[in-house]
């Protein structure tokens, strides 16, 4: 039972779908769980919203079965890492990389406002607001790692 002793950092991992119906369940679980573990309702709300937006993207743009969400709370750094992994097409990956570059480059509020103005003109059902919203609402850092058709989007929250 050594695994359960000396636990330094919190860690959650879930693998499912991708299915839209799981998203609300995961969001609600994270919100409740993080509100207790972080003892901070505001961060629990923000992180669960970010998880929900990333999972929506994972489901919308998945090319194959399998979505993994993991959360790691590094207590010494007071940082929380949220990762969502899924498979996607090279075409979608290219769009994602370009979006993340734009979002990370600018001021979070200005980028979000620009994305909102663009969203008003979109007619394809997508909003492309999720990542800009996460960055604006949390001031978190967004990172993308690609391994073939496997996409890993990481959001790093500075809880200080």
């Amino acid at each position: 039972m050594e695994l359960f002793k000396n636990v330094k950092n919190g860690f959650i991992e879930m693998i499912f779908g991708p299915r839209w119906t799981y998203i609300a369940t995961v969001r609600t679980f994270l919100q409740n769980f993080l509100a207790i573990t972080l003892a901070d309702n505001k961060w629990a709300d923000v992180i669960s919203m970010a998880a929900s937006e990333l999972l929506e993207n994972a489901v919308k743009y998945a090319s194959d079965e399998g979505t993994k969400i993991s959360i790691e709370h590094i207590k010494d750094e007071n940082k929380l890492y949220l990762h969502v992994e899924n498979f996607s097409t090279q075409e979608n990956i290219k769009v994602l990389l370009s979006e993340v570059e734009k979002i990370n480059k600018g001021d979070p509020q200005e980028v979000y406002l620009m994305k909102m103005q663009e969203a008003a003109l979109r007619t394809d059902g997508g909003s492309q607001l999720g990542l800009a919203r996460i960055r604006y609402e949390s001031n978190a850092t967004i990172k993308v790692d690609i391994d073939g058709d496997l996409v890993k989007v990481s959001v790093i929250f500075d809880l200080k």
Binding site: E53, M116, A119, A120, G125, L129, G130, R133
Partner: peptide, 16 residues
């Protein structure tokens, strides 16, 4: 209690 970004987009479309 929750509004996803696609829902935000519908409000943006109205306001604009």
């Amino acid at each position: 209690t929750f509004l996803n970004s696609s829902g935000i987009k519908t409000l943006i479309k109205w306001i604009t």
